[in-house]
């Protein structure tokens, strides 16, 4: 079981690195906030792994990663959705999410409610994107890649919304390898989406 757990961790790290490789080496055109999200996701996973190995308190890294994720994904969805109503919904949801984060940080420093609220928010964001995509008449290649990224976010958050309730207990079990495998697989999906994206146009 422990070997499986270690394998899942390495697989997750490698899968998180792959989108960045495609992004920078293949010079793909991608939303800036999504780029920041992917970079921060890889760096935080790497740092969490390192601090875990050396048994250093990594709470601040985890909390910072959550803050960055809330901001970058909200900006990402805000910029790619076409419907004004959906944009307003995103601003409202982001405000709720950010408020929960600040409230929990000042109160306990341990994020539990924030993680659950966050997962719900991302599920709503993803659903809004699907509806927006169906309603929009013009679709470009970039939007087709964003569907895959959106699906990755959607599936991951559907999986993690319940996990987040007991994240502290779950993280110390070997069953956490399921999370790592799913997260890794979904990061591979993001890598495929980036692979399919058009290249950056050089002027």
């Amino acid at each position: 079981m422990e070997r499986l757990f270690n394998f899942s961790l390495i697989f997750q790290m490698a899968a998180e690195f792959l989108p960045l490789v495609f992004l920078f080496f293949l010079k793909k055109q991608i939303n800036k906030s999504l780029k920041i999200f992917l970079i921060s996701s890889f760096i935080s996973s790497f740092l969490l792994y390192l601090t875990g190995v050396f048994q250093i308190n990594n709470l601040i890294i985890f909390n910072a990663y959550q803050g960055i994720t809330i901001c970058t994904l909200s900006i990402f969805y805000f910029s790619i959705l076409k419907s004004h109503l959906f944009k307003i919904i995103i601003v409202i949801i982001f405000s709720i999410c950010f408020f929960t984060l600040i409230w929990e940080l000042t109160k306990t420093s341990y994020l539990v409610s924030t993680l659950v609220v966050e997962s719900f928010c991302y599920i709503i964001f993803a659903l809004l994107f699907y509806i927006d995509y169906i309603n929009s008449s013009k679709v470009n290649n970039q939007a087709k890649s964003y569907i895959l990224i959106n699906t990755s976010i959607f599936i991951y958050n559907c999986f993690s919304v319940l996990n987040n309730l007991e994240i502290e207990k779950l993280m110390i079990t070997n069953y956490w390898f399921i999370h790592n495998l799913i997260d890794g697989l979904l990061k591979l999906l993001i890598a495929i989406a980036i692979w399919k994206m058009p290249k950056t146009y050089l002027s």
Partner: peptide, 18 residues
């Protein structure tokens, strides 16, 4: 911790959700 059935249920339900 691995033997807590509640955690197993959570993981199972999470997999069903995904």
């Amino acid at each position: 911790a691995q033997n807590i059935p509640f955690l197993k249920v959570i993981i199972l339900v999470s997999i069903i959700f995904s």
